[in-house]
Amino acid sequence: MLVKTQIQRILSGWAMVLPALAFYAVFSLYPIIGGIALSFYRWDGAGPKTFVGFRNYLYALRDGIVSVAFWNNTMYTLGILLGGVFIGLLLAVTLTRGFRGRNVYKTTFFVPRILTQVVVAMVWGWIFNPFFGPLQFIGKNLGVPLFTRGWLGDPQLALPALMIAGSWTYFGFCMVIFLAGLANVDLTLFDAAKIDGANNWQIFFFVTVPQLRPIITMVVLYTIIDSFKVFDLVYLLTKGGPGNATQIVSTYIYQKAFSEAQVGYGASIAVILTAFLVVLSAGYIKIRERGEA
C-alpha cells in the first residue's frame, strides 16, 4: 500500500513537471544542443554538412576579429554598467525623496525602455547625424567641435555613441528595479547616518549601496549577459563599422553565419560566447558571495 502511494506520488509529480520539461526540452535544450553540434560542422546553411571536428574553434581562436569583437563587447558592457546601471541607481535614490511630480519623472525615464530598438536606432541615428542632427546643431552653436563630428562614422566615437544610445534605453529599467529594492531598505539606518554627520554621498555609498547589494548583484549580472548579447541596436546603427570599430560578438556571429554562409563557424563563436558568459557570471557570483560572507 505504501509502495503504491509512493509510486502514485512520483507519477503525479512527473505528470505535473512533464509539460514544462517537454517545453523546455523542445524549445531550449534541443536548440542549444543543436547549436553546439552545428559548431563541429562546416555548413553553408543550405547544402550538406561536413564534420570538421574542432577546426571551427581553432580558427576562431586565431581570428583577430573575434578578439576585437570580445574587446568591443567588454567596453560596451562597461559603458552600459556606468551609463545604465549607475545612473539608474542614482535616479532611483533621487526619486525616493519626496518631491512633486515624481511619477512623471519615473514614467519619463522608463519610456525609452518600452521603445523598440528600431525606433531607438532611428532616434539616435538622427541625433548623431553630422548634417541634420541636433547634436551637431548644439555643437555648432556652443562651439563644441566634438559634437559636430559624425560620431557613428568615427572609429573613436562610434562605440561611445552606441554606449550612450544603449544606456538611454536601459537606465529607466535599472531605476525601476532599484526603486523596488529601495522600498525595502531599513530607513532607520539613513537617520542614524544623518545623526552621525554623513553627507549625501557617504549615505549613498555606505548605507544605500550595501543594503541594495543583492539587487545590484542581480542587475549587474543581468546587464553583463544582456550587453554581451546586444545585436539589434549595433546592427541598425553601425553594422559593426566603421571597419570593425563597433564589431561585437553578436554582429560577427550574424555576419559569419548569415551573410557569409559559414553557419558552423558562426555557431562555434556563439558557443564560445556562451561559455564565456557562464564563466563570467559564475565568477562574478562567487566573488560577490565571498564579499558578503
Binding site: N129, R149, G153, D154
Partner: peptide
C-alpha cells in the same frame, strides 16, 4: 565627399543631393 561620410546612411546621402547641398 561629405565630411563624416561613414556616419551617413544611404537615405541621408540621397537627402544631401535632393536638398541641393
Amino acid at each position: 565627399f561629405p565630411p563624416d561620410l561613414l556616419a551617413l546612411s544611404w537615405q541621408e546621402g540621397i537627402m544631401l543631393f535632393t536638398t541641393g547641398m
